[in-house]
Simulated assay, not measured.
Amino acid sequence: MSDDDFELYDLRVELVRSGPGQIYCGNEGDWFELHGEVLKLPPGQGFSIYSLSAVLPLLPAKQRVTDANDWMSTDAEVACPDPNCPSRLRITRIGKRRFSHAATTAVPLPTKPQE
């Protein structure tokens, strides 16, 4: 581990049914994974941009280590943005991945003060 390493969780977002009725934003079981900043879909499957817009703002926070008492650690489902759709988007942490600060940004880390 180098001085500029950090860890992020890989995430899986899956479309799950939360009640009766027709799902309008895709198919139950549709999913994608987020590895670092890369969104990965299985071959031949799409994902609703409206559903994606509902969950996207939460993903960077879900990727980071959080306190066990933080709601971000426990709350895992986001409602579909269509109020008539009985689906939720379930966010699951599926593993950790290590990154280097220098490999992810051109902004250098601040220099450490001399002791």
Rank of each mutant, 00 (worst) to 15 (best):
H101I: 04
G19C: 05
P20W: 09
P42K: 14
D70E: 05
F32M: 09
G29D: 01
I91S: 05
G21T: 08
L89K: 02
Y50P: 00
R90V: 00
P83Q: 04
L59M: 08
Y24E: 04
V65I: 03
A61L: 12
R12L: 08
V107P: 01
I91R: 09
R17F: 08
K62D: 00
A76T: 11
E115Q: 11
D3Q: 12
A54Q: 06
Y50T: 04
V13A: 03
P110M: 14
L8T: 01
C80I: 01
P60R: 14
R98M: 13
D4Q: 01
L8I: 00
C85H: 02
L109R: 11
R98S: 15
E28Y: 04
S51T: 06
F99M: 09
R98V: 15
W31C: 12
Y50A: 14
T66I: 01
G36N: 07
I94C: 12
V16P: 02
E28F: 05
H35F: 13
H101T: 06
I49F: 07
A103Y: 03
V78W: 08
Y9S: 12
C85W: 02
G29P: 02
L89M: 12
L8H: 12
F99Q: 09
V78T: 10
R97P: 08
A61K: 13
T92H: 06
G26D: 01
P57T: 12
V16D: 03
S2M: 07
K96G: 14
D30A: 09
M72D: 03
D10A: 14
I91K: 07
N69E: 11
L41T: 00
E7A: 15
M72L: 13
S73W: 03
V16W: 00
P81S: 09
G46D: 04
S51F: 02
Q114Y: 08
L11S: 01
G95Q: 15
E33Q: 13
D67N: 13
T74G: 11
K112S: 13
A76C: 08
N69Q: 11
Y50N: 08
D75Q: 08
R64N: 10
L109I: 10
R90D: 00
G21E: 02
Y50R: 10
A79S: 07
P110T: 15
P86F: 07
E14Q: 10
S53G: 14
C85N: 03
R88W: 08
L52N: 00
E77G: 05
L39Y: 13
W71C: 05
L11G: 00
D10G: 02
D5V: 01
H35Y: 13
Y50D: 08
